[in-house]
Amino acid sequence: MDEGFWGRRSGGGGGAAGWEGERGSKEDEACTLKETSEEDSISSEKCDEEESEAEEERDYEDAFGQNGLCALARLAKVAEPPSKRPSCLRCRRPLKVCLCPFLPAKPLTVSSHIYILQHPAEESRVLRTVPLLAACLPRDHCSVLVGRRFPEDKYPELARVCRSPSTLLLFPGRHARKLSVGVCPDPNLAPFSLLLLDGTWRQAHNLYEGNPLLQIPQQVRLQAEECSSYVIRTQPSQTCLSTLESAACALALLEGQPQLREVLLQPLHALCSFQIQYGAQPHDSKEQLLNSGRYNKPWPRNKRKLRRLLELRY
């Protein structure tokens, strides 16, 4: 009885094992079918791609002919992007119009440190003055930071500089003090750090408004005495200066060395001379164009831009 019982149990166990084997075979069949369907799908996709490529080739052949299609294929193989002209490593200008002969033989000796906050749009311009300024000064006395926002956590050194009482921001704000001969900051605070904003007037204004670090009390502006020599770009008014010109005037005053101004401006004069020699036209300021009736661009519809433009008249 017991044997029969255990025998039936054993037989039952064998039945279970047989059922497991049957289920395994069904699963294998399902996997095989799934793999087969996947392979069919992949092969179908490949066929579709091949058919679409063949259709594209036929379209090109209909449009250009067999000979034209071969010519296009040859051009695609041999065509290469145009190579850039070799540039001077110091002045960053093409070798044909290198400005190094107009730069000082060695970096100028200055105690002040210049920090230039440059708008990203200015970095891609061809006729820039910041590389010329950097080429005239020692590397450890001229730093260029490119961006729109300069948060304190990402620019700790800039934050430290902005908090220093010997740091000056050259920006014509409402509370900026005049920086001219006889009107200079306390010499006991020297050496000074000078912050400059590089870009168009609108870009410089956005840099100032968008960075709380720049809201410092030590703001200075230059006395407008001469017109800008940067005549190959249109300035808002006759007294607006380029970044290089502003730095040259400010450094000459802070360092007490008037000759620094002419030394720093010499490569700018050469740059403008080269450009005019190769066909560039001198630009009058917007102020001159408006007052002489030669401003032929459409008037802006934006009220704020229109107001700024009207402020340049007379």
Rank of each mutant, 00 (worst) to 15 (best):
P212H: 05
T200E: 03
P185N: 07
D198K: 05
V110G: 02
T167Q: 06
K305I: 01
R163C: 08
L253R: 00
K297G: 00
D59W: 08
E27S: 13
F102M: 07
S10A: 15
F171A: 10
F64T: 00
L75Q: 07
L170T: 06
R92S: 15
Y115N: 00
A30Y: 12
D62Y: 13
P151C: 07
E50T: 08
K303A: 14
G12R: 15
N291C: 13
L189T: 03
S41D: 03
P107D: 06
L264Q: 00
G147Y: 07
A224L: 07
L169P: 10
T32W: 14
S44Y: 00
E27N: 11
L290R: 01
E38N: 04
L289A: 01
C98W: 06
G4F: 03
G199Y: 11
K178F: 05
S83H: 04
A54E: 15
P300C: 09
G21M: 08
T36M: 08
P151M: 08
Y230E: 10
L196W: 09
N211I: 02
R202T: 01
A16M: 14
P86N: 03
P104V: 04
P81K: 14
R177Y: 04
E53Y: 03
I216R: 08
S228T: 14
G15T: 08
P191R: 04
R304S: 09
P298N: 03
D198P: 10
R233N: 12
E152R: 14
A224P: 14
W201P: 04
P300Q: 06
P191M: 02
N206M: 04
Y314F: 11
T239V: 07
G293T: 05
F102G: 01
A54D: 13
Q215K: 13
G293P: 07
R307A: 15
S180G: 10
P236F: 11
I114M: 09
E53D: 13
G13P: 01
Q257P: 00
I232A: 12
P82L: 11
A79F: 15
Q118S: 08
